[in-house]
């Protein structure tokens, strides 16, 4: 286990070490201390390493992550795990806007709430939020699953493509082309599997399914088009 201190290293030095030295030296566990809300901590990782960040991080934590498992013992700012490809990111506190934006794969868990635009344009990631999500979450979400254990804010799933959303609490409002659908056996299995991976103890029976009505993204040449 290696301990890296951001009061002594710059984020650039830290990330260069994680990108270039770490893959060579075989260290498989890293602890990052004094994150002090700095941006882009542990972004761009490509190796299967366990990283613990002790404290609150800023924007873009573990952005573009591949294969690494990153846990933050604190809160994160905007765009945590943005464009993640694989691996996992777990936030013990809350996340600010755009959590998991555009992420293609892997698992993002936020144990507290995530604010607006959570999972915006997600492309295959699985996201589990322990509490609430803010407005415009899963906007234009293309693939993957968003599990919200609390309430969802306004315009959930606006312009939704093929991502599927599960909400345990109240939905303030659905966005354009998002609709509630009945839960099927596959949905219960998926929610149970993701809750188990996230370590969050709810029953899938409490969740609703929201998916695309698919009326917005198929071009209808027959419809009268007025611009």
């Amino acid at each position: 286990m290696e301990r890296l201190d951001l009061s002594r290293l710059s984020v650039r030095e830290l990330n260069q070490y994680l990108h270039h030295e770490l893959p060579k030296n075989g260290v498989d566990e890293v602890e990052i201390v004094n994150p002090s809300g700095l941006h882009s901590i542990a972004a761009g990782l490509t190796v299967p390493v366990k990283i613990r960040v002790l404290g609150h991080a800023g924007y873009f934590l573990a952005g573009m992550n591949q294969r690494a498992d990153v846990t933050v013992h604190g809160n994160v700012g905007w765009s945590v795990a943005e464009n993640m490809m694989s691996g996992s990111v777990r936030v013990k506190g809350f996340a600010s806007e755009c959590a998991g934006a555009s992420a293609h794969g892997g698992l993002l868990v936020v144990q507290g709430s995530a604010s607006s635009r959570c999972g915006i344009s997600m492309k295959g990631v699985d996201i589990v939020i322990g509490e609430d999500v803010g407005h415009m979450s899963a906007f234009m979400a293309q693939a993957g699953h968003l599990v919200v254990c609390g309430n969802a804010g306004a315009s959930l799933g606006d312009s939704l493509y093929e991502a599927v959303l599960y909400v345990r609490g109240k939905i303030h409002s659905l966005g354009a082309d998002a609709r509630e659908e009945p839960m099927m056996e596959d949905d219960y299995r998926k929610v149970d599997e993701l809750l188990r991976k996230a370590g969050i103890d709810y029953s899938s029976r409490e969740f609703k399914r929201v998916a695309s009505a698919r009326s917005l993204y198929h071009w209808n040449a027959e419809a009268g088009q007025e611009y």
Partner: peptide, 13 residues
């Protein structure tokens, strides 16, 4: 605007 400008405050943790 951002947490990093609060990180130095006493008792912030």
């Amino acid at each position: 605007s951002e947490f990093r400008s609060l990180a130095h405050l006493p008792g912030i943790q």
